[in-house]
């Protein structure tokens, strides 16, 4: 599903945001990616959706080498991955409904179906009553939950979330984690970057920890599928 093979990334010469990262994530796994801020979590996630290209090493996602896939295949790759961005990345002049269903609309899915799906996911994150609000009319926590709804609306094969509970109170955070578990049980691979130690301990999942761009510790795969 995801494989990193001696991956390096740097933004300035000789300063590595990631160095020599190797791991494999199997289909259906639920993984926490942790480490102090600045450890390289966001950078790693950016590499997976090909927002960035690594300086060295290979990355396979769904069996495709993301550094070398043709440009016109990138949108499809990104659509197969649901992403909750650390800074939400909601479009300001679109409503919650439009933000959540934008990609569905580009795929030609009709309004009725889009409404149905938006209603479902917004209910899951407890925002069904804010469908026609604009992002700036919502609190940070609410915006974050819209980002979660958008990430899961198209039934992604892989869900990637960058500190998705960072702006939520503990109860809401637990709700979102339960939601991720539910999605994971339906077969979606889930990768959550967080520095919330309590949550990680509670959930008892595989943990990959980074420190200063290096892979510090990997608690190991708990799913024994064939490597992908």
């Amino acid at each position: 599903m995801i494989r990193f093979y001696h991956v390096y990334q740097s933004y300035q010469k000789d300063v590595f945001a990631l160095s020599d990262i190797s791991f494999t994530i199997n289909p259906g796994e639920f993984i926490f990616l942790t480490g102090p801020s600045g450890a390289g979590k966001t950078t790693l996630l950016k590499l997976i959706i090909r927002e960035e290209i690594p300086k060295k090493g290979q990355i396979l996602v769904h069996g495709q080498n993301v550094s070398s896939i043709p440009v016109n295949k990138i949108p499809r790759l990104r659509r197969s991955i649901g992403v909750v961005f650390q800074d939400f990345k909601l479009i300001r002049n679109k409503t919650v409904f439009e933000n959540v269903t934008f990609v569905l609309k580009t795929l030609g899915i009709d309004l009725k179906e889009r409404r149905r799906r938006a209603h479902n996911v917004l209910k899951m994150v407890g925002l069904q009553h804010k469908t026609h609000f604009y992002p700036l009319e919502l609190s940070g926590g609410e915006q974050q939950r819209v980002a979660v709804a958008r990430a899961i609306v198209n039934d992604p094969v892989l869900l990637v979330a960058d500190e998705p509970t960072g702006n939520l109170d503990p109860d809401r955070a637990a709700d979102i984690m339960n939601l991720f578990e539910k999605i994971n049980r339906k077969g979606t691979t889930v990768l959550v970057a967080t520095h919330d130690r309590d949550m990680i301990q509670r959930m008892r999942k595989r943990v990959i920890s980074l420190n200063a761009g290096r892979l510090d510790h990997d608690s190991g795969s708990q799913v024994h599928g064939e490597e992908n």
């Binding site: 959706i49 949108p75 499809r76 990104r78 479009i91 934008f102 990609v103």
Partner: peptide
């Protein structure tokens, strides 16, 4: 944002 969520060109 449109690019990142996978809208095609």
């Amino acid at each position: 944002i449109m690019k990142l969520v996978g809208a095609s060109r």
